[in-house]
């Protein structure tokens, strides 16, 4: 009894300690958020402040739910955001001080009302108060644009992880990676490490290993198995992949036929050819072909296409064929 209580008590104590440490961390982040707020972060670093505040609340919610892992993750986001908010707001504050320190004109200069209200960039901030009188910007930024966008990709530099390279908003302003440099982004590239044309999904054009006829799929390269076994050899994967794609695309029903030469016992040959046809079917199903589109039949030596009296003939007779039976739709 005591033995079982001790580990449970240890776990509970550890959990409490972890929860308490996280709460302390949350309090320290909250203090930093308060500092940021006092420094007018809402205007100077709105995104950072919002991120810090939101994640702080989410962390506390997770702690209330007893989910320390999630709380830790949220605090991990909140803390640097709060820190950034404080840093940005300090810079922003300095700018504000500089404005306040502007020497006031010694003697009031009489100006016409239309001149005092002059607003060259039409942003609602009169030129006298506008730090950027030629570029529109909101009043809380003293008439300056919120953020610049050096690469002109529509993602402002404050959130642009690649401010000098145009990139989509979804990738934080960075261009999508393209390892093979074929102008097809890796996310859309079926062959991200081999250059290929965009109309072939970024893959190089290869000579096809199969030809789809009306009633069969012709193979330019036979499917190879381990001798006397139904294990497909690796060098046949490419041709099988092409077959899989063709069957998937054409939505047809295909009969996979296994054939052998006449060496050995007939019954064993039939069994082997069936096992090989089954192995091919299994491979194609793994490659996304629906099982109902495929049937596998082992004929053994029953249907030779060449003489079994020569080595070349026997090689031709050991084969797998693909007969198109009907369209599935």
């Amino acid at each position: 009894m005591t033995r079982s209580i001790v580990p449970v008590a240890c776990c509970l104590a550890a959990a409490c300690a972890s929860g308490s440490a996280l709460r302390q961390r949350a309090d320290s982040v909250a203090a930093e958020v308060k500092v940021a707020r006092d420094l007018n972060a809402e205007a100077c670093a709105p995104r950072e402040l919002a991120t810090a505040e939101a994640n702080l609340r989410f962390a506390r919610l997770a702690l209330d739910q007893g989910d320390s892992r999630r709380a830790d993750a949220h605090l991990g986001t909140a803390a640097p955001a709060a820190h950034d908010a404080v840093a940005r707001s300090r810079d922003c504050g300095k700018q504000a001080v500089a404005i306040k320190d502007k020497p006031e004109p010694q003697a009031p200069v009489p100006v016409a009302p239309s001149v005092t209200a002059k607003d060259g960039d039409g942003d609602g901030v009169p030129d006298v108060d506008d730090l950027c009188p030629d570029v529109p910007g909101p009043p809380e930024r003293r008439g300056c644009p919120l953020f610049t966008d050096r690469d002109g990709d529509g993602v402002s530099d404050d959130i642009d992880r690649c401010p000098e390279l145009p990139g989509p908003k979804e990738n934080f302003g960075c261009p999508w990676p393209d390892r093979d440099g074929d102008k097809v982004a890796d996310k859309d590239d079926r062959c991200p490490d081999e250059p290929g044309s965009p109309d072939n999904q970024g893959c190089p054009r290869r000579e096809r290993l199969i030809v789809v006829r009306r009633d069969r799929i012709e193979l330019k390269q036979q499917i190879h198995f381990q001798p006397n076994r139904a294990k497909i050899l690796r060098d046949s994967y490419d041709v099988l992949d092409e077959i899989a794609q063709a069957v998937r695309d054409a939505s047809v029903t295909v009969r996979i036929e296994g054939h052998t030469d006449n060496v050995g016992k007939r019954k064993e040959n039939v069994t082997l050819s069936q096992a090989r046809a089954d192995a091919v079917k299994e491979y194609l199903v793994r490659e996304g072909v629906e099982a109902k589109q495929l049937t596998a039949v082992g004929y053994g030596p029953k249907r030779p296409i060449a003489s079994n009296s020569t080595r070349a003939g026997r090689t031709l007779n050991r084969r797998v064929e693909f007969r198109i039976e009907e369209a599935t739709n």
Partner: peptide
């Protein structure tokens, strides 16, 4: 996103959560 970034970011984060 241009005029009320603070509120918009909060709304976005809260909605996701």
């Amino acid at each position: 996103d241009g005029y009320a970034l603070y509120e918009a970011t909060l709304a976005d984060l809260y909605l996701a959560k």
